[in-house]
């Protein structure tokens, strides 16, 4: 069993948890992911690692409540535990040798972009962070990003906080202004990453996108996480989760990601109703 050491609500739909998993904490690196199960007979949920503390033996996860599993996880309290927590899985982010990087995060994807920005900052790279959210209420990790960025851009779709517009707006301005980066690293909704990659492609800036497709085992067995990258079939769990964003078939990935959308929504509602009954 893996104990929830701390729990914090970052916004109404996003929660941060620190979980005691010393074996995983010992090896975790930015860009890798873990898989959890919230209860016996529960689904296996892949979540990218948002942080780790090797001395305390803890791993931090930040998740958005989307299906029944994350709904149930969100109802777990500090001190309670979950039966399964496996990782670190996937290949770590390649940060070696990067001197000037733009990190573009969107929504809950910012949680995963943060450790990447931190790692780059710690190795002395010049970090430009662009983070975007739908509105002010959904903003997370602003201070944390500022602390590890040389240049910081906050965007909201409705303009209720920071600048109005999506993350591509400042990115395009920077590139048009002659700014150069060794690499752009983008993590967020598929549609956002698609447009970030389209923007940077125009300027020939290498771009890495972190993919979070449907997955079961996470170890290279089921093939559920397959993607088309450069016309070839790749498996996010063992070949990724990060890929050359200019080669990813985002339209296909978006279509596949919606395979169980209806089922998830239905199951989440069921889980919610379960809690409503408990409260009564």
């Amino acid at each position: 069993m893996y104990t929830i050491v701390s729990k914090k609500s970052l916004n109404p739909t996003v929660t941060q948890m620190e979980i005691y998993a010393p074996f995983v904490a010992k090896k975790a690196l930015p860009g890798q992911f873990i898989i959890i199960r919230v209860h016996e007979d529960g689904e296996r949920i892949p979540l990218t690692i948002a942080g780790y503390d090797r001395e305390k033996g803890t791993v931090t996860i930040i998740f958005q409540i989307v299906g029944a599993g994350t709904e149930l996880l969100n109802h777990k309290k500090e001190g309670e535990s979950i039966p399964d927590f496996v990782g670190p899985l996937g290949r770590p982010t390649h940060t070696e040798g990067l001197k000037k990087v733009c990190v573009v995060g969107g929504g809950v994807g910012c949680a995963i972009a943060l450790p990447v920005a931190k790692a780059l900052h710690e190795q002395g790279a010049e970090v430009t962070s662009i983070i975007g959210f739908r509105n002010k209420d959904l903003v997370i990790l602003e201070e944390e990003f500022k602390a590890c960025s040389n240049h910081f851009h906050m965007m909201t779709d409705d303009g209720s906080y920071g600048r109005q517009g999506n993350v591509c707006v400042p990115l395009k301005e920077l590139l048009e202004g002659g700014e150069t980066f060794d690499e752009v690293i983008t993590i967020g909704p598929l549609i956002m990453m698609k447009f970030v990659c389209a923007t940077t492609k125009e300027f020939g800036v290498k771009t890495i996108a972190s993919m979070n497709p449907i997955m079961i085992d996470g170890t290279g067995m089921c093939g559920g996480c397959r993607l088309t990258v450069g016309g070839e079939m790749k498996f996010a769990c063992v070949d990724g989760p990060e890929f050359d964003g200019h080669l990813i078939d985002f339209d296909e990935a978006m279509s596949r990601s919606r395979t169980y959308a209806e089922f998830e929504a239905h199951k989440r509602e069921e889980a919610c109703n379960l809690f409503k009954k408990e409260v009564k």
């Binding site: 067995m221 093939g223 397959r226 993607l227 079939m233 063992v238 596949r256």
Partner: peptide, 22 residues
């Protein structure tokens, strides 16, 4: 055993295509 094999024919990434493992 590990990664499932596919046929490399068009349409293998459509929703509703599984490997037997999955």
């Amino acid at each position: 055993a590990g990664l499932p094999k596919f046929m490399k024919i068009p349409g293998e990434s459509l929703k509703g295509v599984y490997s037997a493992n999955e």
